[in-house]
Computed example of a mutant assay.
Amino acid sequence: MDTLIKKADILVEALPYMRKFHNKTVVIKYGGSAMVNDEIKESVMEDITLLKYVGVNPVVVHGGGPVINKTLDRFDIESEFYEGLRITTKEIMEVVEMVLVGRVNKEIVSLANRFGSKSIGISGKDGNLIQAEDYQVDDDIDLGYVGQVKEINPEVLDNLIDSGFLPIVSPIGVGPQGESYNINADLVAGQIASALSADKLILLTNVEGILGEKDNKDTLLSSLTIDEAEDMMEAGKIAGGMIPKVNSCINALQGGVRRTHILDGRISHSLLLEIFTDRGIGTMITN
């Protein structure tokens, strides 16, 4: 009986948050280690399905870096990175699109549907959802078919949400001539969150969050302001693959999203812990 009472207490604790987020949109970027571990995959999809059933409107934007890496290795194609972004030749772009749209997206849709979500997978090319242009960098470096979001057409996602579907978005953008662009999934998630006026942006990753000192888990920062995050990037304390994540949060906040979070997707039910309890995990970035 004590165990049952504790379970009831947990539900009561979650009630205010269920009311708060009822009918609110939450954009979730799903990637990293959470995509290669079957147990965590199922945990994430269970969480997202539960969010849907209690009245939250989740939108999933997925990555697929580890799967892309394995496929490129199989084809003996080498790739390089610049500030966390994969330099994308035409050959690599064909592989990226094949993996993200043809394989990863459909696997996620299938798993989500298995848990009871009415999910639909789309890429940024469908309905011109993600209109893209060349990604601009200060240095004299050609990133190839790496894109940045020029414009999001929220009508596509609004219609799916209004019809009760769970949209699962592959971050392939479309250029002015119909060409495909490889866009960092973190950045896409931030732009989609802004376009949908989402209440939250949550980035699932394979680290604890933002650390004050490199490799020191005890220095996990529970919250940061935009100014503090920018100062840390300038000082080199935020580097590599964390840069697009932090920039995604900053762009989303400046676009009207209320709160952004970088969570450790390796923790079981990290989404539910963040949204439905008063014990937040990871790092929250706010205005």
Rank of each mutant, 00 (worst) to 15 (best):
A8R: 14
I172N: 03
G147W: 00
H62R: 08
E133N: 11
I10V: 14
I285K: 08
K106V: 10
K52D: 10
G32N: 08
Q254T: 13
Y17M: 12
R19D: 14
L211F: 01
T283L: 12
L187K: 06
V149K: 01
A132G: 00
D158C: 09
S170Y: 03
D47G: 07
I10N: 13
G127H: 01
L201H: 02
V257T: 13
G280P: 13
G209Q: 06
P58K: 03
K6V: 11
L253G: 05
S33R: 14
E91D: 03
R19S: 13
G124A: 10
D199P: 00
D199M: 12
Y30P: 10
C249Y: 07
V95S: 04
G178I: 05
S43D: 15
E94R: 14
I161G: 08
V149H: 02
E94F: 11
S197F: 12
Q131A: 10
L211I: 00
P244K: 10
M35Y: 07
M93F: 03
Q191V: 08
I10F: 13
L273H: 13
G64V: 10
V44M: 14
M45W: 13
P167M: 10
S123F: 03
I281P: 07
K237N: 14
I28Q: 02
E133S: 13
L220T: 02
S222H: 15
F276P: 03
D199L: 08
L160K: 02
S223T: 14
N153V: 08
M284K: 13
A229S: 09
I267D: 05
E274S: 12
S194P: 10
K20C: 01
E78N: 11
S268K: 15
I267K: 06
G209R: 06
L187M: 14
V101A: 12
V61T: 10
L51P: 01
S223E: 15
N23A: 02
V99K: 02
L15E: 14
I122G: 00
I262G: 07
D139L: 15
L72S: 01
V56G: 01
I48Q: 04
D227K: 05
N37S: 12
I130R: 00
L204N: 02
E230Y: 04
I40H: 04
L272M: 15
K200Q: 05
G236M: 12
V54T: 03
V60Y: 06
S197L: 11
P171V: 09
K237G: 09
V27E: 00
S180H: 14
E78W: 01
G64H: 11
V149M: 03
L111P: 11
I161V: 15
R266E: 13
K106H: 11
I281N: 08
I262Q: 07
E83A: 11
I40E: 01
L160D: 00
N128H: 10
K41H: 02
I262T: 08
I5Q: 12
I141P: 04
G121Y: 03
V59S: 07
G121E: 01
Y145S: 08
I192T: 00
L51Y: 02
G84E: 09
L143E: 03
I192W: 00
A239S: 15
